[in-house]
Simulated scan of single mutants.
Amino acid sequence: MSTRHKTRPSKPALPDFDAIVPVTRRAQIAETMRSLILSGQFEPGAQIVESELAERFGVSRGSVREAIWELVDQRLLVNKPYSGTYVAETDASTMEEVYSVRGSLEKHCFSELWDRRDGAYEDEFSRRHDSLARAVRSRDKLASIEAELHFHSFPYEFADNSVLLGVWQQLSQQIQLNFVMTQSIVHSNSFLEDARRYFEVALGPDLDAMHAEIDRHLELGVQAIRMLRPPAEVEGKV
């Protein structure tokens, strides 16, 4: 009996793509500094001294300088001629612009998800709200910043709209800088009451009430910045 050899299908040719590039020192330094800025460990307005960072990281000043310019491009650092480099600050004018975009975005986000809210939505939102409350009561600055961003990210994640989520992620660094600057206000009963109100309306029956709550909540964020910064523009504002 004759045997027939099965021929294996030929493997498709791989598409063109770039080889993996090892992470550079500049990238590692930039990522570490980004985390320190967005966690508030490098406080807004603090001066960044290149030589001190180079010694602390154990690298050349050139590597630190490249990382600094990357963060300047991302508007997390500000270079002031004849003065130095500083962690970016924000002011009410800037946050009004950011929160105007965020307000429109968030209203659209809730409009998309409103009729799809279910038990999983309530459970996860409740979990994130409880985590925020615990972090604030513990007076842990870093945990509070992370928990607040995690709490407000949930509607964008649940909406399952990649465009909405992408725009939120682009805004999140600027919003997180605002969280960093308003930490003295975060650790108060009024902050927890406001967060609770936002959460309860987000679980309620009235979409129009949610839209109004978004406006109210974001205006409180701008007011918090006004309490900390004068009405005049901050020098080197982002």
Rank of each mutant, 00 (worst) to 15 (best):
R134D: 11
N161H: 01
L218W: 05
R128W: 01
V49A: 02
A212K: 09
R102K: 06
T3A: 07
Y86S: 04
R61G: 02
T182I: 12
I29G: 03
G62T: 15
V180M: 10
A159D: 09
Y121N: 04
L165M: 06
L36Y: 12
V87F: 00
L192D: 10
K141M: 10
V21R: 15
V72H: 07
V49H: 11
H108A: 12
S51K: 11
T182S: 04
L132I: 00
D73W: 04
V180N: 04
M181Q: 13
A67R: 02
D115H: 14
L53N: 11
A224C: 03
D194E: 13
P81V: 00
V98L: 15
L142D: 06
T94A: 09
A54I: 00
Y121H: 07
C109G: 00
E200S: 12
K80R: 12
W168D: 05
L53I: 12
A212V: 11
A195Q: 05
G221C: 09
Y99H: 14
D215V: 01
I68F: 06
A13M: 12
V23Q: 13
V136F: 06
G84I: 02
R216V: 15
F158A: 03
P15R: 13
E66C: 14
E70K: 10
I185W: 08
E97V: 14
T24R: 11
A92H: 01
A147I: 00
P81T: 02
S162T: 15
D215R: 06
D91E: 07
I20D: 14
L53M: 13
W114A: 00
A27V: 06
L142P: 02
M210I: 01
V234D: 02
L164I: 09
P230K: 10
D206K: 02
